[in-house]
Nucleic acid binder design. Structure first.
Lengths: 212, 212
DNA sequence: ACCTGAACACCGTTCAAGT
DNA sequence: ACCTGAACACCGTTCAAGT
């Protein structure tokens, strides 16, 4: 089948199908050949639309980042930070198999950088020194990506009871496996709230003691 | 070359060489063929010692985890938690290319599970309810793995100045790229201290209000 | 401009064969 | 028991060829 009047592929359709495959079969389940087959086409055709598989994956990650909401910084920096972190986590949880790609770095991703820019600007506007603002953004990112990546649910997903007798203290933890998703959510909330609690204390000190 | 009197390979030598290759060329740089070549042998020989590449990678991750120190829980739970988190982070920073394997889950790793068991036991002994102890362990793991995975240094390692005009607030952040490792270290400390600060407050409430 | 078959240089893993 | 060559079923990507 040579070039048809109307193209068989476009970037949006390639991305949508690629994301489906990744959600269904995992990141390792996506190959250019399998993706092409899913699209009714041969692998080399994809290279007419995406220069490399890596470019495609980065575009998918950028799509994910577009769902992250930083609008709550308009209220105040604590509200903004909490809402940012929570929507960031939700965006990743919607496509857990793609998290390693997102974690690999925002280097070339517009949506990720635009949001980082907003966060940094809002924190500086709230009185944080630029370096602290950078650190707060980085810390929050650690927490969100760590929670998405190292989720309790994922960590213990296989072979459950086996450890019970060898690691007595983990027995409790393992019996909680059924509620793993809930534990992940609560652990994230605990970490985020504690973090914000500490930051608020720091910010108070900061505004009480003006820079010399 | 058929079977020599003394075996050419053993698991320890395979692991040492594999870790060298990963440190030097990245996780994607390790293939069974390249590893075999480095060891002066053919790829199939490796399967006489390791059942799969995955088993080998998990053994490497377990080696890393063996360097993680949980002994400070003997002092008190805050000291223990801080020392655990810091030595965990240091262990990962020593082999950053292996972090994705560690993050993928401790499911089958003795060293990781033994440490998780100690942490959980120490927290419960300090008066935390088992579920809270699980959450604290999970949260700390999020933070450590997130910091190792989503390091600021790594995220912006390529193309620096390009973003400066497009994302004005990030200009500062990018000019700090030279100190990226330092920013990562300080961000981790900030997040960890804030987290522990919040936990201490929770623990005080907990011991003041005994369970009904 | 977009899709194709064929090809290149790789993968992880299996297996029969050698000693 | 340990190592080998050959093979299987894959990869990402390139490229000349077709329309």
């Amino acid at each position: 089948m040579p070039r048809p009047r109307t193209p068989l592929l476009d970037r949006a359709r390639i991305r949508a199908t690629a994301l489906d495959v990744i959600d269904r079969d995992g990141l390792a389940g996506l190959s250019m050949r399998r993706l092409a087959a899913e699209l009714g086409v041969r692998a080399p055709s994809l290279y007419s639309h995406y220069r490399t598989k890596d470019d495609l994956l980065n575009d998918l990650a950028d799509d994910i980042m577009r769902a992250v909401d930083v609008s709550a910084f308009a209220v105040d920096w604590v509200t903004g930070l909490r809402a940012w972190a929570r929507s960031y986590r939700a965006a990743l949880a919607a496509h857990p198999n793609l998290v390693p790609v997102v974690a690999a770095g925002p280097a070339r991703r517009d949506a990720a950088l635009a949001r980082a820019d907003t966060v940094h600007g809002a924190l500086v506007a709230a009185g944080w020194p630029p370096r602290q603002a950078t650190m707060i953004g980085a810390s929050t990112r650690y927490l969100v990506l760590g929670a998405a990546m190292a989720s309790f649910a994922h960590g213990f997903e296989t072979d459950a009871q086996i450890y019970a007798d060898r690691y007595p203290h983990l027995d409790q933890a393992h019996r909680l496996r059924d509620h793993a998703a809930e534990i992940d959510a609560d652990s994230f909330t605990l970490a985020l709230d504690s973090f914000l609690h500490g930051l608020r204390a720091l910010h108070t000190d900061l505004t009480r003691t003006p820079p010399a």
